[in-house]
Lab assay of single mutants.
Amino acid sequence: TRVETATETAWISLVTALHLVLGLSAVLGLLLLRWQFPAHYRRLRHALW
């Protein structure tokens, strides 16, 4: 049971790290898009909202 718990903890930390990385890359990508294509971003936002 001790090994299982350790594996579970490792998986949880791995998944958390993955989610953090994905979230950060998504935010960075959005910022980059907004910085590179302001007109396109505004049009996209206008279409979405």
Rank of each mutant, 00 (worst) to 15 (best):
T1V: 12
T1M: 12
T1L: 13
T1P: 07
R2H: 12
R2Y: 13
V3H: 00
V3T: 01
V3K: 02
V3I: 14
E4Q: 11
E4F: 13
E4L: 12
E4W: 14
E4N: 13
E4I: 12
E4A: 14
E4D: 10
T5Q: 00
T5F: 02
T5G: 00
A6S: 14
A6Y: 04
T7F: 10
T7Y: 13
T7V: 14
T7D: 07
T7E: 06
T7S: 13
E8G: 06
E8F: 00
E8L: 03
T9I: 14
T9A: 14
T9G: 11
W11A: 00
W11L: 04
W11T: 03
I12P: 01
I12Y: 08
I12C: 06
S13T: 15
S13C: 14
L14M: 13
L14F: 00
V15H: 02
T16S: 10
A17F: 09
H19N: 00
H19A: 02
H19S: 02
H19T: 01
L20V: 13
L20E: 01
L20T: 07
V21Q: 01
V21Y: 04
V21D: 02
V21A: 13
L22R: 01
L22Y: 02
L22D: 02
L22V: 12
L22T: 10
G23Q: 06
G23R: 02
L24C: 08
L24Q: 05
L24T: 05
S25M: 07
S25Q: 10
S25H: 04
S25T: 14
S25G: 04
A26S: 11
A26E: 03
A26Y: 05
A26W: 08
V27P: 01
L28N: 03
L28I: 04
L28T: 05
G29C: 14
G29D: 06
G29R: 04
G29P: 00
G29S: 14
G29E: 00
L30Y: 09
L31S: 12
L31N: 04
L31I: 12
L31E: 04
L32W: 09
L32G: 01
L32P: 07
L32D: 04
L33M: 10
L33K: 04
L33I: 11
L33G: 05
R34K: 15
R34M: 06
R34T: 09
R34W: 00
R34F: 05
W35Y: 15
W35F: 15
Q36D: 00
Q36S: 15
Q36H: 15
Q36E: 10
F37A: 07
F37T: 03
F37L: 09
P38R: 14
P38E: 10
A39T: 15
A39I: 13
H40M: 10
Y41V: 15
Y41L: 10
Y41M: 10
Y41I: 11
Y41C: 15
Y41D: 03
Y41T: 11
Y41K: 04
R42S: 14
R42F: 09
R42C: 08
R43E: 07
R43I: 06
L44A: 10
L44Y: 07
L44I: 14
L44K: 01
R45I: 07
R45H: 06
R45M: 07
R45F: 03
H46Y: 09
H46Q: 12
H46D: 10
H46E: 09
H46N: 09
H46K: 05
A47L: 08
A47K: 11
A47E: 04
L48E: 06
L48M: 13
W49Q: 00
W49N: 09
W49D: 00
